[in-house]
Amino acid sequence: MNVGDPIPAQEFPITRADLVRYAGASADFNPIHWNERFAKEVGLPDVIAHGMFTMATAVRVITEWAGDPGAVIEYGVRFTRPVVVPDPEGAVLSVAGVVREVREDGLVEIDLTASVNGQTVLAKSRAVVRPPAGA
């Protein structure tokens, strides 16, 4: 594994049903995440995905590559724009990763890019990971 090596990119469809399920699991029932009328009344273009849902979906690229969610030692992002989830078509979160650094302790730093319709939704998205065997 070398600096600059890519992590396989993936696309994740996001639907309103996903947001409702996440609201139930997280107990975040803010209507901007499920009620189009309310979201528009507060100035949003439509319903938006929860930030933590977006963050968790993006890191799946790494957990699936590593083969173990427990391999992620650190993970952080900066939210740059909301993920708008229109009904019924939903949205598609496109995520790719690249090795930023291979550390002396054997851990790997990975930078992620996450976008919807070509617009970045997460910035400074970086994880420290225990790489899979043989990587």
Rank of each mutant, 00 (worst) to 15 (best):
V102M: 11
V42H: 07
E104S: 15
R78Y: 09
A17R: 14
R78M: 09
A17C: 10
R21V: 12
L93W: 02
A96F: 04
G43K: 05
L44W: 04
G90M: 09
T15W: 08
P88A: 14
A56G: 13
E101N: 14
L44A: 07
V61A: 09
T63A: 01
V92W: 05
I110F: 04
G134I: 09
L112M: 11
M52R: 01
V77H: 06
P8I: 00
Y22Q: 06
A114C: 13
V83D: 04
K40V: 14
A96Y: 05
P86Y: 08
A9P: 07
T80P: 07
D111G: 07
R16G: 15
P31V: 03
F38I: 10
P82G: 15
V121A: 08
V83F: 03
T80D: 08
D28A: 13
L19C: 07
L107Y: 08
R78P: 05
A96T: 09
R60M: 02
R130L: 04
R103T: 09
V92R: 12
A9R: 05
D68P: 00
V99G: 03
A17K: 13
H33Y: 10
I110S: 00
H33G: 09
H33S: 12
G4A: 04
S125F: 05
R81Y: 05
V129R: 04
P31C: 08
D68N: 08
E36W: 06
A114Y: 03
V85C: 05
N30D: 15
V85G: 03
S26A: 14
E74V: 09
M52K: 02
P132M: 02
R81L: 06
V20S: 05
G90V: 14
A49S: 11
R60Y: 04
V20F: 06
T63F: 02
F53K: 03
V128T: 14
T120I: 14
V77F: 06
K124A: 14
D105C: 14
D87V: 15
G43N: 10
I48W: 10
G67I: 02
V121D: 04
P82L: 12
L19I: 10
I32V: 15
V47R: 10
R60K: 11
E36Q: 13
A66M: 02
L112Y: 00
D105P: 12
E109G: 09
P45F: 03
V47L: 12
G90C: 11
V20K: 05
T54G: 07
I32D: 02
P31F: 05
P6W: 02
A133F: 04
G134F: 09
Q119G: 14
A127Q: 10
E89Q: 15
N35G: 05
I7W: 01
H50F: 10
I73R: 15
Y75R: 03
P88C: 15
A91N: 01
V102G: 09
V72D: 00
Q10A: 13
G70K: 12
A71C: 04
V108Q: 03
